[in-house]
Design a protein around this nucleic acid. Structure first.
Lengths: 217, 217
DNA sequence: TACATTTGTGACAACCTTGTCACATATCCA
DNA sequence: TGGATATGTGACAAGGTTGTCACAAATGTA
């Protein structure tokens, strides 16, 4: 939890701080992320950080909550009821994912890291939340779609969920393979991961969903 | 490259060293892995390590090559020509993967880490090799199977390859979800990840391959 | 203006890391 | 046995890390 002092900061100061911290924790694992680099980047004193947060862990937890909230705000704008077809809904979720990446590139990269690259024992207790949440959501959907006839009931729910989640997360890698140069460039320049390849991304998503649908129907 | 001194070491000494080093680099990222912990575990002097290897990086590269070689030895025993059906071949590869994990648990965990969790800039130049190799192999297969009629030619090769690789690698996660407790136990005790769940693993693999086949046919 | 409160500072301690190197010990060979 | 070579040792330097704390500056308040 950030201190009163941090919350009392001017909007601009706070945002500048969050951005610098996010960048550090997006570029490095928890263990190798350095408070020194953050303050150097911001040009502030070491003590300030510890007047805002009790800990490195405290700061990390705040950034995690902050980023998840940002993502939630974007994702939850997609309403399941607005789609009759499950796969259309699924596709819409991906599209919102793109928008999130474009609007919050640092959050996006940070969440990607803590979701798939982080392995520090210091934070391992806090890594499960997101995934198990997603699992619950997908499980719910799969069971619904099994009844609705969209998903073959003979396929174990657990397997279908794994299939869907695993594909959702690996799409980034697919695009990295396809548009290698741009991804690296964007990362270096601190741009959103997807950047200008939106249409290609949409095409890849469509192809992928077709495969998923074929497998699970 | 290890020095003459290291290669001259007695088989037992060398193996003990490799195991301790593998354990350290399997449990920690490159940056946070500690030579101090390795020597403490082995009860040897700091200087010895630097008489065997010039560098921490040099040691890491050796362990990488060593582990990859171990895996190759196991995997290459599966001959494509021994199978008329591609999916049978694919299934056999998984089975060999189980054997590798059972016979070389440390190598298995180390390779898993450098394949999916590593993000240190120090070693980033050396991380691509394995993946691009796998991609080449899978690409070759997919193209063959397209001609043979096993895989639908209208599916882009890139997509099919991504599908296969992504599923191959995420199977571990599926099993972790299913048999959470056992996995944690095995990890703590330094046992192979899969251990006693071989039959369950085989079942999960079969189910998964059925889905893959359905999607790609 | 004068005082109280909040915010900012950076030297510092304590602890880690890697790689070195002069020295000690063990092993081999004649 | 004696001398050369190979192997083992651990204190050390140089650099990094986090969190602290007495103090300085800015801001709010009366």
């Amino acid at each position: 939890m950030p201190t009163e002092t941090f919350l009392n900061l001017s909007e601009e100061k706070r945002q500048r701080f969050i951005e610098a911290a996010l960048k550090e924790f997006a570029d490095h694992n928890y263990d190798t992320a350095s408070v020194n680099r953050i303050i150097k980047e911001l040009g502030i004193a070491r003590g300030s950080v510890y007047q805002y947060f009790t800990d490195k862990l405290d700061l990390w937890l705040y950034l995690k909550e902050y980023s998840e909230q940002q993502k939630m705000n974007v994702i939850q704008s997609v309403d399941r009821k607005a789609f009759t077809n499950f796969w259309d809904y699924y596709r819409a979720l991906f599209t919102q994912g793109i928008h999130f990446d474009l609007q919050h590139p640092l959050c996006s990269r940070f969440l990607y890291r803590i979701g798939y690259k982080e392995s520090s024992k210091e934070v391992s207790n806090y890594l499960d939340g997101w995934k198990s949440k997603a699992k619950l959501m997908f499980t719910h959907w799969v069971e619904e779609e099994k009844e609705a006839g969209t998903i073959n009931p003979s396929i174990p729910t657990e397997l279908a969920v794994h299939f869907l989640i695993s594909m959702s997360t690996s799409i980034t890698e697919l695009l990295q393979n396809k548009y290698e140069v741009n991804f690296d460039e964007n990362f270096k320049n601190g741009k959103p991961l997807i950047a200008s390849n939106i249409t290609e991304f949409q095409l890849a998503v469509n192809e992928l969903i077709q495969l998923l649908a074929k497998a699970l129907t």
